[in-house]
Simulated scan of single mutants.
Amino acid sequence: MVTGSRRSRSDPVATHEWVVVLDVCAKLVLLLAVSRVALDPGWGNLEGKAPGTRAITYPMLAFLVPLVYAVRRPAAPYPWLADLFITLPAFSDLLGNRIDLYDRVTWFDDAMHVVSTCLLGAATVILAGSAHATFPRRLTISVAAGMTFALAWEVWEYCAFVTRSGEVGTAYADTVGDLALGWLGAATAAVLFELANAPRSRKVPPSPPRPASAHRSGAPIGSDG
């Protein structure tokens, strides 16, 4: 049951049916894609880019939240939006390589670093229950989580294939740039929550004072007292 759909439309963590559909579809397509990549790395344009490791780690990331909820069984509603945000980076990386956007579009890799870190930072804010917290708290959580994910990704790339690829000569400069883009994405997530919360934070103007009753004794109007 999509319990979050009963929340206000301005709620940044409200869950709607389309979020559930997108999350499930992204996971199914991801599983199909990693299975194909594991059998034929050329299909995903991942030759020399650790296709086997991606086929293992991407499903682990995409099913992290379902696993935690299956084990812990918390009373809170399932965080479909956060789960979708965690699934999309793995899905988009495979899709981008499959249609060769990383090689054909010069800015695509930089954009993916910003967007992916933004999504992961936003997911962490939601999972931490801080979607409606103060901006400094959301910024702290998002940047801490986003930079941790960004660093983990760079270490993963370095260990998995960079040292054995033609990118080793430019790896250092690329890593520093990617980490900077990761910070930008994480900070953007906090700003987007601030914008999403803006309608909720607007103060409702006070109601005009009611006129004093002609019968302060509480007797009904028109009675003889």
Rank of each mutant, 00 (worst) to 15 (best):
Phe85Trp: 08
Ile86Val: 12
Ile86Cys: 13
Ile86Arg: 03
Thr87His: 06
Thr87Glu: 07
Thr87Lys: 07
Thr87Gly: 02
Thr87Cys: 11
Thr87Ile: 07
Thr87Arg: 07
Leu88Ile: 12
Leu88Gln: 07
Leu88Ala: 07
Pro89Arg: 04
Pro89Phe: 03
Pro89Met: 05
Ala90Ile: 05
Ala90Tyr: 02
Ala90Gln: 10
Ala90Leu: 09
Ala90Ser: 15
Phe91Gln: 06
Phe91His: 11
Phe91Lys: 02
Ser92Tyr: 11
Ser92His: 08
Ser92Cys: 15
Ser92Asn: 12
Ser92Ile: 14
Asp93Leu: 14
Asp93Met: 13
Asp93Thr: 12
Leu94Ala: 08
Leu94Asp: 01
Leu95Val: 15
Leu95Arg: 04
Gly96Met: 07
Gly96Trp: 03
Gly96Phe: 05
Gly96Leu: 08
Gly96Thr: 05
Asn97Ala: 14
Asn97Cys: 13
Asn97Thr: 13
Arg98Gly: 12
Arg98Phe: 15
Arg98Tyr: 15
Arg98Met: 15
Ile99Trp: 10
Ile99Asp: 08
Ile99Glu: 11
Asp100Ser: 14
Asp100Tyr: 05
Asp100Gly: 08
Leu101Ser: 06
Leu101His: 03
Leu101Thr: 11
Leu101Gly: 05
Tyr102Pro: 07
Tyr102Ala: 12
Tyr102His: 12
Tyr102Val: 07
Asp103Arg: 15
Asp103Ile: 08
Val105Lys: 12
Val105Trp: 13
Val105Glu: 09
Val105His: 11
Thr106Leu: 15
Thr106Tyr: 14
Thr106Met: 13
Thr106Arg: 15
Thr106Trp: 12
Trp107Phe: 13
Trp107Cys: 09
Trp107Ser: 15
Trp107Val: 15
Trp107Gly: 08
Phe108Asp: 04
Phe108Cys: 06
Phe108Pro: 04
Asp109Ile: 09
Asp109Asn: 13
Asp110Leu: 13
Asp110Ile: 10
Asp110Lys: 13
Ala111Trp: 10
Ala111Asp: 02
Ala111Met: 12
Ala111Arg: 07
Ala111His: 00
Ala111Asn: 06
Met112Thr: 12
Met112His: 07
Met112Arg: 06
Met112Cys: 10
His113Lys: 05
His113Thr: 04
His113Asp: 04
Val114Asn: 02
Val114Phe: 08
Val115Pro: 06
Val115Lys: 03
Val115Gln: 05
Val115Gly: 03
Ser116Phe: 02
Thr117Gly: 04
Thr117Ile: 05
Thr117Tyr: 02
Thr117Asn: 07
Cys118Ile: 01
Leu119Pro: 00
Leu119Glu: 00
Leu120Asp: 00
Gly121Pro: 00
Gly121Gln: 03
Gly121His: 00
Gly121Val: 03
Gly121Trp: 04
Ala122Phe: 01
Ala123Asn: 01
Ala123Lys: 03
Ala123His: 01
Ala123Val: 05
Thr124Ala: 08
Thr124Glu: 00
Thr124His: 02
Thr124Ser: 08
Val125His: 00
Val125Met: 02
Ile126Gln: 00
Ile126Lys: 02
Ile126Arg: 01
Ile126Gly: 01
Ile126Tyr: 00
